[in-house]
Design a binder for these strands. Structure first.
Lengths: 160, 160
DNA sequence: TATTGTTATACTCTATAACTATA
DNA sequence: TATAGTTATAGAGTATAACAATA
């Protein structure tokens, strides 16, 4: 269709596919960050779907693997998940035989989380799916750009 | 507390604040992208809160400003919002006198969207809040790194 | 008094199906 | 037949408050 040039600011954003455009939005980090994250995350959700696993549960498996015996609320705090919302996620993983919760003898209010053999297998399968996505990203950007992007995002995570 | 070194892969991720760590997760673009976007987005939501405006509504105002007379479903398609979910967002903006919907004479099924004077004022106030956030980001990263980040994210948006 | 895990609940965002009026 | 907008609804993800057991 028509190609229009945005008549604002310096940076010109053009739309070649339709008569409408997003205005100045694609020039802002916050907007582009949100859009690209939604894409990448939706793609990962769909990928994990074949394992009947949600991203939060995958992250919990990684956390428990890295910190055997860690507490449920430690995992939640680390991943930014409310303790109330951890209950269901953990319960489902335990029901499927992926992890165990053992009452800690030192503090009997809390559970110590441990990965079971079946959970280890699930974790390895999930890692392969993640690795495939990461490989697509690295392939698309090139390894150097991919590394720069990760470094920049990590720095941005320390904003404020 | 203690400082532990992850004993996996090459890249070492260390936690200096607690005895637990996220394992290999911070080495992956998908994971870091998600975390940093959540931060930045939550910050922006809180900022827009003083205008009683949600990010999606701000984006709609930008789109209508850039494309006067655009259709409701065009805006939705452009922003990745289902037409069913556009209804409430648009209705609220119209109720507050920010935009008008005029039956298009060419296709009387659709509405042509136009920004009203009050909507223009709201848009300018929202832009100032966005600009403040963008300035904090640019200040934190440095202008060059900020520009590189935007370029990399834009390229990543074209994945697949 | 404070904290871990739990339940109940509510709010937002997102997704789908069915309807109407137009095309 | 197909599309624009609407309605109703259901599913996630996320947030808070209150409680029992334990510290």
């Amino acid at each position: 269709m028509t190609t229009r040039r945005v008549r604002r600011s310096g940076a010109s954003f053009e739309s070649h596919t339709s008569g409408v455009d997003l205005g100045p939005l694609p020039e802002y980090v916050g907007f582009v960050l949100r859009r690209v994250q939604s894409q990448v995350f939706a793609d990962f959700i769909q990928s994990l779907n074949e394992l009947d696993l949600r991203p939060a549960q995958f992250a919990i498996l990684e956390a428990v693997d890295a910190n055997p015996g860690m507490t449920q609320s430690d995992a939640g705090a680390m991943l930014g998940i409310q303790k109330a919302n951890m209950v269901g996620l953990i319960a489902e993983l335990e029901r499927r035989g992926m992890i165990v919760r053992r009452r800690s003898p030192r503090d009997r209010r809390s559970y110590a989380l441990h990965l079971l053999a079946e959970g280890g297998r699930l974790l390895r399968r999930a890692r392969r799916l993640r690795d495939a996505q990461e490989a697509r990203i690295a392939n698309h950007l090139g390894q150097e750009s991919r590394d720069r992007l990760l470094a920049l995002l990590t720095r941005l995570a320390h904003l404020d």
